[in-house]
Write a protein that binds this DNA or RNA. Structure first.
Lengths: 190, 190
DNA sequence: CGACACATGTAACACGTTACATGATTTG
DNA sequence: CAAATCATGTAACGTGTTACATGTGTCG
């Protein structure tokens, strides 16, 4: 429901048309999650169907601006007033993957952890690099969210590795997995 | 794609039928993400369509067990060998919400942050409570993932509040949208 | 028998992504 | 003019959720 409410929030600033909405959405989040333009139009149609927005008759060029309605404002206020519960969130694919890897025969769990750690560290570096650019506050906060999440993921991966050693002390054969790290990252035993 | 691959991983242990798959999936993750039984059957159909599993003719009771195929094993191995990139993940609704709240007129961002913090702290306590129960290692790791994420979210919310004070010194100010007077930054930390 | 858990499936719907088709406007 | 960009829309598909329909097996 992020797009639906996101567009509503943008329309709270004033009437906008589809292309504008995509541009402003991506501006706010620094294009962290690129928004397909088709999705904007289908979402606008659903919002109109639900009475949360209505189109304005101005057809200067080809633009069809929309305006938020009273019901839309109420819905938006409810969104801002309601915290996001853990149960609302999508499944954490990484957690599922590791949990299942533990009981799947033939899987080198340590290698899975190590591969993910490399990728996550790389992502973290990229976010840190991006933060040095000039960004507005909204995007900076989005970047910080990504950074905090990546750091938490790294901590969790360390934690998993430690727990793993106690559970399966020695994986029988070091099967090769895709790991592009040169050498340096192996001694992070928390 | 978590369910699709999750079911494949469970089938790697041996042939299973739909009901079993749901039970084992929820066992592994401690019912953190309850899995609708209908979803299991539709996913099994898609896996069969794609040649990753095939049904076994045994129809003892009403059970229709499935078996993983060679292509299924390959797909599963690829899943385990490939790290999960940040771009694969779903949009972070909380980050979007706060980023947009900053530029939406009439929104008390500090209140949004505070409401979320309360909810997240409550979730964190619940996870900590659950961890005291007796759980298998996979579920314990899933719980730890939730805990680490919640802690990161709390840290981020604190961070947002701090950044907010410098950006919009007075939240209760009702009208001004374009007030850029760099007034005295009162450090009102909660 | 009647209730309940086990077990399989289908239908309708929402959301998201990708790709495609179609014009209008700007600009080199 | 031609190409790129702006702008709107549709179609097909994958995934996920909810609700409903149906049958079997067990147990008080």
């Amino acid at each position: 429901m992020s797009i639906r409410h996101g567009l509503l929030a943008l329309l709270e600033r004033g009437p906008r048309y589809g292309y504008q909405l995509r541009a402003e959405f991506e501006d706010s989040t620094g294009s962290t999650w690129p928004l397909n333009i088709g999705q904007v139009y289908t979402t606008l149609n659903r919002l109109e169907r639900d009475g949360l927005v209505h189109p304005l008759p101005e057809h200067d060029g080809g633009q069809r601006p929309y305006e938020i309605t009273g019901a839309g404002r109420a819905e938006l206020a409810l969104w801002f007033a309601t915290p996001i519960a853990r149960t609302d969130r999508p499944r954490d694919e990484l957690a599922i993957k590791l949990a299942l890897a533990l009981t799947t025969p033939g899987v080198n769990v340590a290698a899975v952890v190590q591969t993910q750690r490399t990728a996550t560290m790389r992502a973290l570096q990229e976010y840190t690099r991006l933060k040095r650019g000039d960004a507005e506050l909204p995007w900076r906060l989005v970047l910080d969210a990504m950074i905090f999440q990546s750091e938490a993921e790294l901590r969790w991966l360390d934690h998993c590795e430690t727990a793993l050693v106690r559970f399966r002390p020695a994986p029988p054969a070091p099967l090769p997995t895709r790991d592009e790290t040169p050498s340096t990252t192996r001694e992070t035993q928390a």
